[in-house]
Nucleic acid binder design. Structure first.
Lengths: 224, 224
DNA sequence: GGGGCCGTGGTACCCGGGTACTACCGTGGC
DNA sequence: GCCACGGTAGTACCCGGGTACCACGGCCCC
């Protein structure tokens, strides 16, 4: 029996998922959550096998909720559902510890089999997302492998979603500049800097600027 | 027949271990202990082959209990179980005379084979901890001897003033841990963490933890 | 015994960082 | 024309980070 927690801010969406899952005799919906905070709390309390996690939710979003759930040490797996197959936050979700991604318009059978696979410990990725996932994986392989060695610095997938400006912001974050310093030296308002920083954190899957700095080093955007 | 004493402050955890061990026909659980004092007393009284020892317990903790048990001269072996893979007490446990340590989220079969190995006189270390253990071991080797060329990074002057504990704190800062996470995973009060962090910042000349992360990368304390 | 150093812990306070939400304006594409 | 997107900017709010203290026990060393 696979136990599931449904986290989605749309009641109708939750209802649909619940109906689908309850129709299966090997699945039980333990509870529902309408935002990330609720999802984290109920996941810790109920220890479901799988959390069906929507990305976009008010308050704590699905990515951060995933990070906290997977960081808790529980066996609970998180299966993220994205609305669009090119969701820029997909990679952030993976880094947050999710066991898979599916798009919301997938076939019901695919969703069900995906939940079973994740509960079993496997990972699932929607076909539309598989390619970029492969790219990310290949990039992290040891260098010796294939013809890709001719590329000096293949763009890290974490940086792929960043705009030029955001990449610039990440660079100076990696230099240790504060928001105030960034604003002054780049002739911007501090509120603008905060907006950029917020987007950089979201797209790179960083919880705060400290993790963004680490990301900057790991991707080679800045170097020791 | 391997006789085991289970020492853990959480009843549910003890129950789980007992169920697992009793399901094996070559193991017997002699008794359980809810704290370190009880563990020492019952170990001396029952002379089990193996004590399954939790690190974190009220009163006398698992490390000190291990020290007393192994110092008693009995042939009882101690197998330490840690919750977090970077538990600093794991090393302390080895120094205290433990025959090994495993992480609590290990596979049941691994735990069983670990107990058998320890009872046989061998030592076991969780794979996730092996690397760190090796690093720690190498780090504590005397400097004078061999191949100094294998040391690519002579100690950076910024790190020279740091105590071992502070260097450890800087390392986990470099991994992006928040003060709260450091406190939880190292079993410290958050105020203590703040004290350490403050001293690290002062000694490394960092304005905030972001610059401390950069310092950690530049000195090679952590690497991309 | 006294005096450091180290690790641990506490309280109180302030500020920067991060989030949620909204808004306006170019530019480029359909 | 309209729309999507990127860059800019603002407000309001909460929380974690950092600081300034102080305190205590264990050590080691003179």
């Amino acid at each position: 029996m696979t136990t599931v927690l449904i986290a989605d801010d749309q009641p109708l969406q939750r209802f649909g998922f619940r109906m689908l899952l309850e129709s299966q005799d090997d699945m039980t919906v333990l509870d529902e959550a309408a935002n990330g905070t609720e999802a984290v709390r109920k996941a810790a309390e109920l220890r479901p096998d799988v959390v069906l996690m929507d990305v976009r939710m008010p308050g704590l979003d699905g990515i951060e909720a995933t990070r906290r759930i997977t960081a808790s040490g529980d066996r609970t797996r998180v299966l993220i559902l994205t609305t669009f197959d090119l969701d820029e936050y997909a990679y952030a979700g993976l880094r947050a510890g999710a066991s898979g991604f599916l798009v919301k318009d997938a076939q019901p059978e695919d969703l069900l089999s995906g939940i079973r696979a994740v509960a079993f410990g496997d990972a699932v990725v929607a076909p539309a997302l598989t390619r970029r996932l492969l790219d990310a994986y290949v990039h992290h392989l040891p260098v010796g492998g294939s013809a890709s060695s001719s590329m000096p610095s293949p763009p890290d997938p974490r940086l792929a979603a960043l705009t030029d400006r955001e990449r610039e912001i990440l660079t100076v974050i990696g230099k240790g500049w504060t928001n105030t310093e960034i604003a002054a030296r780049l002739h911007l308002a501090e509120s603008t800097v905060k907006t950029h920083v917020g987007r950089v954190l979201a797209k790179t899957g960083s919880r705060d600027r400290v993790q963004a700095v680490i990301c900057a080093y790991e991707t080679g955007l800045v170097q020791p």
